[in-house]
Design a binder for these strands. Structure first.
Length: 481
RNA sequence: CGGGAAGUGGCUCAGCUUGGUAGAGCACCACGUUCGGGACGUGGGGGUCGCAGGUUCAAAUCCUGUCUUCCCGACCA
């Protein structure tokens, strides 16, 4: 205990310094390393594999709903950004530019994409001629760059990985339906795969995407009570269609602008996983996205080693054949206790301990990342492991949901919000009249921003927390990453 | 981008005030003993002190610039 407190090579407790805890965890869990360029990180294998598992789950859902993947260029001509006014204003400050290539100055500067609406708009204008070409449903897995002033690994990096879906439709109704369909896919994925509960709702006009008509989001709560926007889905109306001249001939032989959508999630999801599930022991990964779901640790003196390893190999083959991501740590020079701590730090959901005592009794010891430890019979092992992984997945979601509920408050006035934030952090439901001025006032006085207008609330507020006029919406306010 | 702190072996840090042979713990390598919650002994290897200039007989140490990280703020997905 006192040893850990003094030894800074261990993880800083969350209660002592949440930011330091976060940085400690991602480094101890070996998820990333800093690159020598400002705000850029290397995704190390354990970190990258979490992203690959997210990709796999999402990609399947995208394809099931009729989308196909494509890939568009990294470079975007400067002139493209002039075409949609709000879009330019929103992204210009954070664009990196390529001004020179092949030893010569470029005639037109090229932006490194911050998002691909413009490039895709340009291409869609070429590809879409008739209502028969619609809907066009494309997704892209890519890297994007936004030159952020302040960076934080995973949550806000200069370059990040994401997917961006871009669709074009005949009608507003169809496009809006698509916008909501993808929002629901995100909700389902984040809640059921990442075990992170979210608030689903619509962004206020000041928080919406640059160039969108309406933006929707799912908002997750970190263990420090701050919010992370975990996914967004936008109805873009005909804004980009007009800017890029994406028209189709309808059934009455009339030229019409298409209605477009875009939607995305990024590697900031990794930051959310860490901050939602992690604890003072380190990372805790939901089984569905854990690169290693089960770690097997053989225990015992040298004279028993051969027998223990043989048994471990047998279990390993069985679990692997069942599709479980299992690894064995049979390094002889490290003590079992060291390994227990190591894999808890790395977030492995389930540990299997096998020693001479277990072999003698035809059993193994299962220990979960959530702190439960029990003995199971060897003939039940596969079934127990599968069941326990499911249990862990569910318990992690339930824990996170309970945490979010415990840290969700409701206020009637700005003064109440200010007082609340003196001692607490979390989501705060409050009435809002719809004016940007009132929204801004909240931010100025509490640093909390409107996260979204939830689709479902327990209680509709009647008055705006700032001006006390009639409330148009009940809004979630929170400090955000 | 403004304010603050920091950068010394893989990690955590000491040394800097007052310039004079680069240190500790952990990690690593070899051998041996250990092994059910961060084992131990003996021996060993590894650092142009972030980078670039400057001052000096001499710079980790003093000065200037610059890069990167962390915190606070402004900006922003």
């Amino acid at each position: 205990m006192s040893k850990e407190a003094k030894d800074k090579s261990f993880i800083t407790p969350q209660s002592e310094d949440f930011s330091a805890w976060y940085i400690d965890v991602i480094r101890k869990a070996d998820l990333m390393d800093y690159a020598p360029v400002r705000g850029c990180i290397v995704f190390k294998p354990d970190g990258y594999e979490i992203w690959e598992l997210c990709q796999r789950e999402l990609d399947r859902r995208f394809k099931e709903t009729g989308h196909r993947n494509a890939y568009f260029p990294l470079f975007i001509p400067e002139s493209f950004f002039q075409k949609e006014k709000e879009h330019v204003e929103g992204f210009n400050p954070e664009l990196p530019w390529v001004t020179e290539a092949g030893g010569e100055k470029l005639e037109e500067r090229l932006a490194i994409r911050p998002t691909s609406e413009t490039m895709i708009g340009h291409m869609y204008a070429k590809w879409i001629n008739s209502y028969r070409d619609l809907p066009l449903l494309i997704n892209q897995w890519a890297n994007v760059v936004r030159w952020e002033k302040r960076t934080l690994p995973f949550l806000r990096t200069s370059e990040f990985l994401w997917q961006e879906g871009h669709t074009a439709h005949e009608t507003e109704a169809e496009a809006r339906e698509e916008t909501m369909r993808m929002l629901e896919i995100y909700r389902d994925f984040v809640e059921n795969v990442l075990a992170i509960p979210v608030i689903v709702g619509q962004k206020t006009p000041s928080e919406k995407f640059a160039g969108a008509v309406d933006t929707y989001s799912i908002e997750a709560m970190m263990k420090d009570g701050k919010a992370v926007q975990a996914g967004t889905s936008h109805y873009l109306g005909t804004n980009f269609a007009q800017a890029f001249d994406i028209k189709y001939l309808d059934r009455e032989n009339q030229q019409q602008y298409v209605h477009t959508t875009s939607w995305g999630v990024s590697t900031r999801l990794l930051g959310s996983i860490i901050m939602v599930h992690g604890d003072d022991k380190g990372l805790a990964l939901p089984p569905k996205v854990a690169p290693t779901q089960v770690i097997m640790i053989p225990i015992g003196p040298r004279k028993a080693r051969e027998q223990v390893i043989a048994k471990t190999d047998e279990y390993y083959a069985m679990l692997k054949a069942a599709g479980i991501r299992v690894r064995v740590d049979d390094r002889p020079d490290l003590s079992p206790g060291w390994k227990f701590n190591e894999y808890e730090m790395r977030g492995v959901p389930l540990r299997i301990e096998i020693g001479p005592r277990d072999i003698e009794n035809g059993q193994v010891v299962l220990a979960t990342r959530l702190g439960e430890k029990r003995i199971v019979k060897q003939e039940d092992l596969l079934r127990e492991v599968e069941q326990t992984l499911e249990d862990i997945q569910r318990q992690m979601y339930e824990r996170a949901l309970a945490f979010m509920k415990e840290h969700t408050y409701s206020v009637d006035t700005l003064d109440e919000l200010k007082e609340l934030f003196e001692t607490k952090r979390g989501f705060v439901l409050a009435g809002w009249c719809g004016s940007e001025a009132c929204e801004h006032q909240v931010k100025l006085e509490t640093k909390a921003t409107s996260r979204n207008i939830p689709f479902i609330v327990d209680e509709h507020k009647s008055k705006c927390l700032v001006c006390e006029e009639q409330a148009k919406h009940t809004v979630v306010f929170a400090r955000a990453y």
